[in-house]
């Protein structure tokens, strides 16, 4: 199947180095300490943070740092064919673990000893790049909850089809058989916190795809910062009207 037309356009009309349209909203659920929705094209994820709160299970309490827990769930209507997923399925467990480890690296857990931070990620629509979308939504929700972090984590995926590196794969491109690489970065500190890839690739191809995904993640970081600034300014103006 041709994933890139002779004019250089992908199946959804994008260029190979183009990200899908990003959209985010902060503070969507009042009950939680922090919440955010994040959309990358048609992939829609909502992330919610409860915490810091007292540890529910005493045996798991850590004396010198916070306990970070994460659960990933997919809605039954999120994929093309409706699938009823049990809670303990392997992909869900793996993604919960991956998101938890990524966010744990970002949170300054030693500032909140003996407490627990719960991150719940719910996928409303899956169209490729779900992993990256979840991490971005979780980062915004944590910032909304005021949990101290080293840096904002941003994530993006990339692949390689028809001999071209492609940024931000959608579901069709993801099932195209090429490699699927997801990277998450601390942008200001310039450190990689998550790197996952499936499939076999020669090393030079890997380098190209990895660099492309990193550039994508940096662009996402820019977007995250803008959204956070805008949201904070809105809250500030709501508290105190502008003094003219």
């Amino acid at each position: 199947m041709d994933f890139i037309s002779p004019e250089g356009l992908r199946l959804d009309g994008r260029r190979p180095f183009e990200l899908r349209q990003l959209h985010a909203e902060i503070g969507v659920l009042d009950n939680a300490d922090g919440s955010a929705t994040f959309e990358m094209g048609n992939t829609k994820v909502i992330a919610v943070v409860y915490g810091p709160r007292e540890v529910q299970n005493r045996s798991q309490q850590q004396l010198d740092h916070a306990l970070v827990r994460c659960e990933y769930s997919m809605a039954t209507f999120s994929t093309g064919d409706r699938r009823r997923r049990g809670k303990g399925d392997r992909r869900g467990t793996e993604l919960s673990l991956v998101i938890r480890q990524t966010m744990e690296a970002a949170i300054l857990t030693n500032l909140l000893p003996r407490s627990q931070i719960d991150i719940f990620v719910q996928v409303l629509q899956a169209d490729g790049g779900t992993r990256a979308c979840c991490i971005n939504a979780a980062a915004l929700a944590l910032a909304d909850a005021g949990i101290p972090m080293r840096d904002l984590v941003a994530s993006c995926s990339a692949g390689y089809l028809n001999s071209t590196p492609l940024l931000d794969l959608n579901y069709l491109e993801d099932s195209g058989g090429g490699p699927d690489l997801t990277v998450a970065l601390f942008s200001k500190l310039d450190k990689v916190t998550l790197l996952q890839m499936d499939a076999k690739v020669p090393l030079d191809v890997f380098e190209k795809v990895m660099n492309l995904a990193s550039e994508g993640a940096k662009a996402v970081t820019q977007f995250l910062r803008e959204i956070l600034m805008e949201n904070t300014k809105k809250l500030a103006f709501a508290k105190e009207p502008l003094k003219v």
Partner: peptide, 16 residues
């Protein structure tokens, strides 16, 4: 007809 309660609604809804 099927209904699911997401853990986003309350931390008690996590897991089962």
């Amino acid at each position: 007809i099927n209904v699911e309660c997401s853990p986003t609604a309350a931390p008690e809804f996590e897991g089962r």
